[in-house]
Computed example of a mutant assay.
Amino acid sequence: MAPTNRAAFYPSDKASKLKVDVSPYPTAGENDVIIKVAVAAVNPVDHKIQTAGTDIFPFLTYPYVGGIDVAGTVAEVGASVTKFRPGDRVLGFPSDFACRAGGYQEYTAVPASVVTLLPARTSFLDAATLPSSVATGAVALYQYLNLAHPSVPARPRNGQTLLVTAGASCVGSHTIQLAVASGYEVITTSSPHNFAHCTAMGASRVFDYHSATLVQDVKDAFKGKQCAGAFSSVESSNALVFDVVSASEGSKSVACSILFSPETVPADLKVEWIHAYYIKDTPLADVIFGTFLPAALASGQYKAAPKPHVVGTGLESVQAAFEISRANAVSCEKLVVTLTEEA
C-alpha cells in the first residue's frame, strides 16, 4: 500500500494563499526517483507563480504543487533506475511542471538524471540549497557558453575570464564554483558585505553593484584579458553585462537567467535566455549531477552555499517563506522549510 502524501498546493490561478491538504502519492515512472522530502527550498519563481500565475506561466494547470529544490531519502525508484536505491540520501531537482513533481510535498517524483547521491558530510539542509541553482549555472556555462566541464580537482586556470553577476545569490554562488572548477577566472558583483562570500566561492575580483562607476570599473578589469563570455543571473545586471562583454576581447556570448528585451542587445553580442530545465535527461545532467557534484561535495571542493535560512517546519511554513522571498528580506541566504526530523 502506498504511503499517504500531503502537499502545499496553489489551489487556483493567482490564489493568494497555499492550501495544505492530502495529495496523491506519486508513482514512479520508469526513470523516476521518488524522494521522501526532508527539506524543500524556496525560490523567487514560487511567489511569482502565486502572483502572476498563467499570465507568465500559461502551461500551468491547477491545483498545482511547486518547489524545485529538495533533499531527502529515496523511497522507491523506477524500473530503469540503477544508480539509486531506497534509503539513499539524495538531493533532487524536481523539473516537471506537474503536481507529482513539486517539491512542496512529503513525497515527490524527480527524474533520476537530476538526482545526486549525498556524501555523509552534506546535510539535507545544505543539500536543498543546491539543485536548481546548480542546474541553472550548468546550463549557462556548458550548454550555452560551451565552456570546459568542471572536474575534481579543479582544472588549472586556462587564461580566460568569465563575468558572473550577483555572486552572493544562490545561482551566482554555484555558477562561480562551477566556472572555477572548469579552470576559469571569475569576476563578479555583489554588495560589499558579501564580498568575502564571493571570494570564498572562488571569484578573483568582486565589484560593488551599487557603485556609480560599476560599468567602467568592470570594463577596466577585463582589459588585457580574454573574455570567456558572461552570465547575467539577475535581470538588473543585463545592461552591465552587455556593455562589458561588448567592450572586451574574446567571446561575445551572454547567457541570461531572466528575460531581456532584444532591442537592448548590442549588435555584436549573441545572447540567450536560458532555463535550468534544459539540463534534464541530457549528457550534461550525467556529468554534473551524476559525476561531478557527488565527488566535489565529498572532497570538500564544492560548497553548499549560500547558507540555509530555516523559515519553519511543516508544509504550513511554505507560505511564510514565500512572503519573506517576496519582500526580498534575506541576503546571501536560501530560504528552506523542513518536513522531517531527519533535516
Rank of each mutant, 00 (worst) to 15 (best):
A127F: 12
R155A: 15
V164M: 09
L178F: 07
H149F: 05
T199H: 11
F207P: 10
C198R: 07
V152H: 03
A138W: 07
S204Q: 14
A168Y: 10
G202Y: 12
V139N: 13
H174S: 02
A127C: 13
I176G: 02
V164N: 05
G137R: 09
V164W: 04
Q177L: 06
F124I: 04
A138R: 11
N146E: 14
T129A: 11
I187N: 02
V139W: 12
V110P: 00
S173T: 13
T199K: 14
V134Y: 02
S169G: 15
S191C: 10
V164R: 00
D126L: 04
P150L: 06
R121G: 01
G137N: 07
I187L: 14
A168I: 01
T189N: 02
V139P: 12
S173C: 12
V110S: 09
R205K: 15
A203G: 05
V110D: 05
I176C: 04
S182N: 05
Q177V: 07
V139S: 12
V206K: 11
F195K: 10
Q143T: 08
H197Q: 10
R155L: 15
S169V: 02
S151E: 14
L162R: 13
A179Y: 08
S123I: 05
V115E: 09
V206S: 11
V115D: 12
A181G: 03
L118A: 02
S204N: 07
T116V: 04
M201S: 06
C198L: 09
T199Q: 13
V152T: 15
N158V: 12
C170L: 01
A203C: 02
V171K: 07
S191W: 10
T129V: 14
T189A: 11
G137M: 11
G159P: 02
L141Y: 06
S190K: 04
P131E: 07
A200W: 01
T116S: 15
A135W: 05
S204W: 00
V110K: 05
T165E: 00
F207D: 08
T116K: 03
L118M: 03
A135Q: 05
Q143W: 00
F195E: 09
S132G: 01
V152S: 04
P119T: 05
H149T: 04
V180E: 03
T199V: 14
S132D: 01
T175I: 10
A166G: 15
H197A: 14
P156T: 09
Q177F: 09
S173H: 03
G172Q: 00
Q143V: 00
A179G: 06
A127W: 12
G172F: 00
T116G: 02
L130P: 00
P131M: 12
H197G: 01
P192F: 13
A128G: 08
R121N: 15
L145Y: 02
L145V: 08
T188W: 01
Q177D: 07
T129G: 11
P131R: 12
